[in-house]
Amino acid sequence: MNRYFIPLIVFIVLIAFFRIGLNYDPRLVPSPLIDKPVPVFTLPNLRDTATTMSSADLRGQAVLLNVWASWCVECRNEHPVLMEFSQNLKMPVYGLNYKDTREEAIQWLDHYGDPYVQSAFDQSGRVGIDFGVYGVPETFVLDRNGIIRYKHIGPITQKTMEDIILPLLNKLDHPAT
């Protein structure tokens, strides 16, 4: 073993990191909000301007909070998964309608179907900033105390739903078992 092996060793370590790095998507930014309480907000309800939806509404039961918009192409891809989730499984999904217009958002829901218990209307995107939203769609899993347990960036696929989100929700709803 002599010092001429040093470059080779450094290189092998680098290659190992690169190989592992290939499995990661550098565009995904993990949220610092995990295990923190959901940001406090009060926003008008999308369908009914007279009422509001607030962070308090998300407590009491483990729920999904889905950030969506009618202009978002990928939202359409995850839409059937959310529909299945809310209609067949009777699980609550709340919506955060992000930087949209009211008419287009309602039209979108009427056309494709509305999986949400209710959607908050975040026209300016200011509440989105509090949630650290940077790419729509994004989905948060909240436990019954309103603590954010998981964040999924990008459209939810059937697989992520079954492998990650449903088991997590089960665990959050029945912590004892």
Binding site: N2, Y4, F5, P7, L8, F11, I12, I15, F18
Partner: peptide
Amino acid sequence: LGVVIGGSLALYA
């Protein structure tokens, strides 16, 4: 990369 660089650095060592 592994073959070209690794091979040449091994040759160097």
